[in-house]
Simulated scan of single mutants.
Amino acid sequence: MRHRVFLVPPATRRKSSSRPSAKVPGRSWDEPALAPVVLVQGAEPLLAERAVDGVVRLARERDPEVEKVELEGATYTGGQLTVAASPSLFGEAKIVVVRGAESGTEDLMSDLIAYVARPDEETTVVVVHGGGQRGKKMLDAVTKSGAPVMACEPITRDGEKASFVMGEFKAARRRADADAVRSLVDGLGNDLRELAAACSQLISDTTGTITESVVDRYYGGRVEATGFRVADAAVAGDAGGAVSLLRHALATGLDPVPIVAALAVRLRNLAKVAAMRGGGITARELGMAPWQVDRSQKDLRSWTPEGLAAAITAVAQADAEVKGESRDPVYAVEKAVLTIARSRRG
Rank of each mutant, 00 (worst) to 15 (best):
G241F: 05
T206P: 14
L202F: 02
G189A: 05
D216G: 01
R266T: 03
L245V: 08
A261S: 15
L192A: 04
G220F: 01
L188Y: 09
G187Q: 04
G240K: 12
A225F: 05
I210K: 04
E224M: 06
I203T: 12
T206S: 13
R193E: 10
D255C: 02
A236E: 13
L263I: 09
A242S: 11
A233D: 06
S213L: 06
S200Y: 00
V215K: 04
L192I: 06
D191S: 09
A271W: 14
L267V: 03
N269C: 01
G241T: 04
P258N: 08
A262M: 10
D186F: 10
N190W: 10
A261N: 11
V243H: 05
G189H: 08
G189L: 02
D191G: 07
L267N: 13
G241S: 07
A225N: 10
R193P: 03
R268G: 14
L254R: 15
P258H: 10
S200E: 15
Q201F: 00
G227L: 00
R217S: 15
V243N: 06
T252Y: 03
C199W: 00
A234S: 08
A197K: 12
A236N: 12
A231Q: 02
R247P: 11
L184N: 10
D191V: 05
Y218D: 05
G241P: 04
T206H: 11
L250W: 03
I203E: 10
G237Q: 02
T209V: 14
A249N: 10
G221T: 07
A231F: 04
G253E: 00
T209Q: 14
S244L: 09
G241M: 08
C199E: 02
A197F: 02
L195Y: 03
L250N: 03
G237V: 00
